[in-house]
């Protein structure tokens, strides 16, 4: 479905350092690498969340995969097309939604916009009617069809945007931070779509978002980018087993004593203290430490109970985007 090999994209940007007069007559540029040697394969039906901080290369990757820009080196094949060189044939099969770039024409009604898409994608009226029916069943767009685009609320507008991006029944979807800058209503409209649209096992979806609940409920795989490099590629079902922490929760009768605290600190794990409760975060790859900690402090009579909990999904993603990310950055 998507095969990316050693994809690199460089940008030449003006170098703003140096003397004004020197720069005036001799413009200087520096090259930044937005994507660096990225390789991966995505199979049909996968729902992939591409994560990373701002400037990590997510949008550049999407722009290459949608045929908007060309890679500096490396290759990429999507649906057996070269996205950039076979753009017109390729984009017939993809649906794209950019958070800050609208697909609608403000002066037209939603239905008139649909007519434009019907012409652009060479769709038949019966196909449009059929897809509208499906869409209406899930999202109730019927009442929006004859409204002028600029009179729509943000949530309604989001529904209309989604309708335009999907009306040609694409095989491959790209959603690039679709809910950025939107209000709760519009975010919910998008989430509703994502969770209820019949993507099935036929449609492949790539999404970049900072909304963890969307990733949690929708994505089957995560690609994590850092400084243009692919630093993690994992199926979400393995995420909690391989990354993050196990939480050792210890309840005390009273506040834990200094000596207990000192004892625990020797293991070098992050500790959260909440009155009579201690949460020790033991990295998944060092989980044998849990037993050692237990053995070391079990004799303390003030301990009521020990509990081992897994990090929940949101905590894991937050950890990935936070501490894991910081570690990766340190290494790179």
């Amino acid at each position: 479905m998507i095969k990316v090999e050693k994809l690199t994209r460089n940008y030449k940007i003006p170098n703003n350092k140096g003397n004004f007069f020197v720069r005036l007559f001799n413009s200087r540029y520096k090259t930044i690498t937005a994507l660096n040697n990225v390789s991966f394969t995505i199979s049909k039906g996968e729902k992939v969340a591409v994560l990373g901080l701002n400037g990590s290369g997510k949008s550049t990757l999407f722009k290459i995969l949608t045929g908007i820009i060309s890679p500096s080196s490396g290759s990429c094949k999507c649906l057996d097309y070269d996205p950039f060189n076979e753009r017109k044939k390729y984009v017939k099969n993809i649906g794209v939604l950019f958070g800050q770039k609208t697909l609608l024409i403000p002066e037209l009604s939603v239905y008139d916009c649909l007519k434009l898409y019907k012409a652009v994608y060479e769709l038949k009226q019966k196909d449009i009617d059929y897809r509208l029916k499906i869409f209406d069943k899930h999202f109730g767009v019927e009442k929006l069809l004859h409204r002028i685009v600029r009179t729509l609320s943000l949530g309604e507008r989001m529904k209309a945007e989604i309708l335009m991006a999907t009306i040609h029944d694409p095989l491959l979807f790209f959603f690039d931070e679709p809910t950025i800058g939107l209000d709760v209503q519009a975010k919910n409209a998008f989430k509703d779509f994502l969770l209820n649209y019949p993507f099935g096992s036929e449609k492949t979806v790539l999404i970049t978002t900072h909304d963890i609940s969307v990733i949690k409920e929708f994505a089957t795989r995560i690609l994590l980018l850092n400084n243009g490099k692919l630093v993690l590629d994992i199926k979400t079902k393995y995420l909690k087993d391989k990354f993050g922490f196990k939480k050792l929760v210890i309840d005390f009768k009273r506040e834990p004593t200094k000596s207990i605290m000192e004892n625990i600190k020797t293991f070098g794990c992050p500790i959260e203290k909440n009155k009579n409760k201690l949460i020790i975060k033991v990295p998944v790859n060092e989980k044998e430490k849990i037993e050692t900690i237990k053995k070391k402090i079990v004799t303390d009579e003030s301990i009521i109970s020990f509990k081992v909990e897994n990090m929940d999904y949101e905590e894991t993603i937050n950890w990935l985007m936070g501490e894991f990310y910081a570690d990766v950055q340190k290494i790179s």
């Binding site: 949608t66 984009v91 993809i94 950019f98 770039k101 697909l103 434009l116 652009v120 994608y121």
Partner: peptide, 21 residues
């Protein structure tokens, strides 16, 4: 401004679509 992106994701020549619309 990068608004060309919205035209490039459609299976037509962007300049043609721009002028027609």
């Amino acid at each position: 401004t990068g608004k060309l992106d919205s035209y490039l994701i459609k299976p037509v020549e962007p300049f043609m679509l721009l002028n027609t619309l």
